[in-house]
Design a protein around this nucleic acid. Sequence first.
DNA 1: TCCGATTGTGAACAGGCTGTGCGGGACGCG
DNA 2: CGCGTCCCGCACAGCCTGTTCACAATCGGA
Lengths: 194, 194
Amino acid sequence: MSGKSEGGTIDRRAARTRKALHEGLLRLVTRKGYEAITVQDLIEEADVGRSTFYAHYTGKEDLLRSGFAMLRAELSATEADGQAGDEPLRFSRAMFDHAGRYADVFRAMTGSRGSLVALEEIRRALSEIVRRELPKGGKDEGLPREVYVQFTVGTLLTLLTWWLEKKPGLKPAQVDAMFRRLVLQGIGDGAERR
Amino acid sequence: MSGKSEGGTIDRRAARTRKALHEGLLRLVTRKGYEAITVQDLIEEADVGRSTFYAHYTGKEDLLRSGFAMLRAELSATEADGQAGDEPLRFSRAMFDHAGRYADVFRAMTGSRGSLVALEEIRRALSEIVRRELPKGGKDEGLPREVYVQFTVGTLLTLLTWWLEKKPGLKPAQVDAMFRRLVLQGIGDGAERR
DNA sequence: TCCGATTGTGAACAGGCTGTGCGGGACGCG
DNA sequence: CGCGTCCCGCACAGCCTGTTCACAATCGGA
């Protein structure tokens, strides 16, 4: 009715539908876990027709990936400022802060009722960041660089999971400190080295 | 209910059925991935009646857990010889050897078409072992012991996944060496020794 | 502003999988 | 050898999936 002709290439109806589906997915995930969600639930929660859903996404996994794509776009937009630090692994603190705010979603995604796809997406996003920020200094490192990247990401996820699952009381800064210590020194007693 | 003659032995027919289902699951997992498997597939592959399946397990996840329980029992049986030796993380080499032999199953279980439940079971089994074998020496470790455990397990899984997924050509001993280096020293400037 | 073309939308449909119930038959145990 | 336990085939309702189709809302040009 009212002509609010604006916006970009996407039809307003389509935009509205996608937004409703993404928001509905988030609500449902925290309510019953990703695995248990059906397309049926999604279209009821978002109040859209069945064929409408399939016109936009091939299934719930596609919707999930789409959500992560949007999230990654946002992240890389707000990440440009984090420069000027000589300290290695500077990004980790921001990660723990961010994860702490979305703790319930994260738990629902990565818990036993979550999704391997979600975990994979998270791992991929983190890998991109780490690949960029990991100190490249190591000239004669004995291990392939990608191993260092995966190791760092793995440790980040380990700490993240342990934190949100077992010790939600800790503050991001505390977990971040543990993360740095582990990544930089391993379990070796850092006292005698260096 | 109890079809077992008190003493732990199971009726041969029941044992045969369960064996057929477990073997069928393994075949199917490597053929089409865990996620895509239906109960329908399982009973056809194992040539078992529908109601028979549900008489033994509540679903495919239950069957999977049961399989891991058996595996863990076997492992802890063949593990008794591990000396409380001098070298820390003595178990890791055996783990990489073992995983290398079941590479295809492992990939099918933990790949994107795998199962979070399987990953969780693997993590749990590894955690038990690491909890037992991790040097408790820590005098004034600033971190909770469980964090060291999870960190070690996480790194093990990271290396395992990277190895089987990206560099299947490497030998277990090589991957094990990387694992030890990372766990003991992290990415810290351990590069200076060489 | 109006109209045709485009595109999103909702209802309905066929097919597949699930989990359960039941009677009859086979096998193992004592 | 008899009894009890377990397996099997079949059937059923219920739910979810992925697609089809007619219709209505929106967009773009005149």
